[in-house]
Simulated scan of single mutants.
Amino acid sequence: MDCRVERIGPGDWERMREVRLAQLLDTPMAFMETYETALGHGEDEWRSRVARVSAEGSAGFAAVAPDGRWVGTMISFTPEPKAAVLVGVWTDPAYRGRQLGVTDALLDAILDWARAEAGAERLLLRVHEHNPRATAFYRRRGFDLTGLDEPYELDPASRLLEMALPLS
């Protein structure tokens, strides 16, 4: 892997904005907002997002290409004791694939954080029912469907499927 993984910090709001817009253009179904909505957010919103990612009980990681661009992200937070939730998952198409290892490296960073810092016993996520690439990645890494699902906010006819990975 020619990228490094680093923790997202409070000063990263411009890179967070840039990668979020790229995420929404690439895989709009994977996120809970539209490109147009994200494009309209001002600096205060982006600063607020990186502050939340940097807060106690949260962690965000970015895969950084040799030229300094973020080419992947994963974010996790702990909404309840002993459980962490994975959100904000994306890898630039040019950096996808098991042989490159970018997505695996990001998930490894999240898992290390969830176990060591968050004390989580399981990692949860929701994946769009029409995102087989993501579902296959999570299955390969040991996640299983829990049987729970919910409507996708931007298209209630679609479902978000819950997956879980035990961490103990």
Score class of each variant (00 low, 15 high):
Gly60Glu: 07
Ala105Trp: 11
Gly147Ile: 06
Pro66Ala: 09
Glu129Arg: 06
Ala65Thr: 07
Ala22Glu: 14
Glu80Ser: 08
Gly72Ser: 05
Gln99Asn: 13
Pro79Gln: 05
Leu106Pro: 10
Arg133Ile: 14
Gly60Lys: 02
Gly68Arg: 07
Ala22Val: 09
Leu145Tyr: 14
Gly11Ala: 13
Phe77Gly: 09
Ala65Gln: 11
Gly97Phe: 11
Cys3Thr: 13
Ala136Tyr: 04
Phe77Pro: 00
Gly142Ile: 14
Glu80Lys: 04
Glu43Ser: 07
Leu86Met: 12
Gly42Leu: 08
Gln23Ile: 02
Asp44Pro: 08
Pro166Trp: 00
Leu25Ile: 08
Pro79Lys: 09
Phe31Ile: 11
Glu33Trp: 06
Gly68Glu: 09
Leu100Asp: 09
Val50Pro: 05
Met32Gln: 11
Glu36Leu: 08
Ala116Trp: 08
Val5Arg: 02
Trp46Ser: 03
Ala83Ser: 14
Pro81Gly: 01
Gly60Thr: 08
Arg4Trp: 07
Leu21Trp: 05
Leu25Cys: 13
Thr73Arg: 01
Leu148Pro: 06
Lys82Ala: 10
Arg17Pro: 05
Ser48Met: 10
Arg133Pro: 10
Leu123Tyr: 03
Gly88Arg: 00
Ile8Leu: 06
Asp144Glu: 15
His128Gln: 07
Glu14Ser: 11
Gly42Met: 06
Ala65Ile: 08
Leu21Lys: 01
Thr103Trp: 08
Gly60Leu: 06
Glu153Asn: 05
Ala120Phe: 02
Gln99Arg: 15
Glu6Leu: 08
Glu33Tyr: 02
Phe143Trp: 11
Ala83Val: 15
Glu36Gly: 11
Asp108Trp: 03
Asp149Tyr: 12
Val89Leu: 00
Arg159Trp: 13
Pro156Phe: 09
Ala120Arg: 02
Asp144Ser: 14
Gly72Asn: 03
Ala59Trp: 00
Arg140His: 13
Ala114Trp: 01
Arg69Trp: 02
Gly147Arg: 07
Arg133Val: 15
Gly68Pro: 05
Cys3His: 09
Pro28Asp: 13
Ala116Phe: 04
Ser158Met: 11
Leu111Tyr: 03
Leu160Tyr: 06
Glu150His: 12
Met1Lys: 08
Val5Lys: 01
Arg139Ser: 10
